[in-house]
């Protein structure tokens, strides 16, 4: 369950931003979680409620997770393709010369604060 420690990192960032930017509470946190990352959104939401409850800033906040689909650039066919898993072969040519271009994100994107 490393979603727990990732969630703690999210709350830590929220609290740091609260101190830096001078807001008291956060109402919604938007995360961008790539479909190729090792994060389970359900587990993250589950952990978020528990961890946020302990934070004066994030208490009661809502978590919104935006999934980013995986895409990779294939060197052999010089095209971008959707991929479902990080080490899948190229769906067009079957080759393995792929560079992941999106889908590995684990980012805080935005917050609604008051």
């Amino acid at each position: 369950m490393h979603e727990l420690s990732l969630t703690q990192s999210v709350i830590r960032i929220v609290e740091q931003e609260a101190a830096r930017q001078g807001f008291a509470t956060v109402k919604t946190v938007w995360l961008e979680i790539g479909e190729l990352s090792s994060v389970l959104p359900d587990a993250m939401e589950f952990c978020f409620q528990a961890v946020a409850a302990e934070s004066p800033v994030a208490k009661g906040a809502k978590l919104e997770i935006l999934r980013v689909p995986g895409t990779a650039w294939c060197l052999d066919c010089a095209q971008s393709h959707p991929i479902a898993q990080r080490f899948d072969p190229c769906p067009a040519c079957g080759g393995h010369h792929l560079t992941v271009t999106s889908g590995e994100e684990m980012r805080i994107k935005e917050m609604e604060v008051a």
């Binding site: 109402k27 980012r107 805080i108 994107k109 917050m111 604060v113 008051a114």
Partner: peptide, 19 residues
């Protein structure tokens, strides 16, 4: 904390693993 309708959106763009 009462909602006075003064909430705002702020962009963060921070990697969760940055810490």
């Amino acid at each position: 904390h009462h909602d006075h309708g003064d909430s705002r959106l702020i962009a963060i763009e921070q990697n969760i693993l940055a810490h």
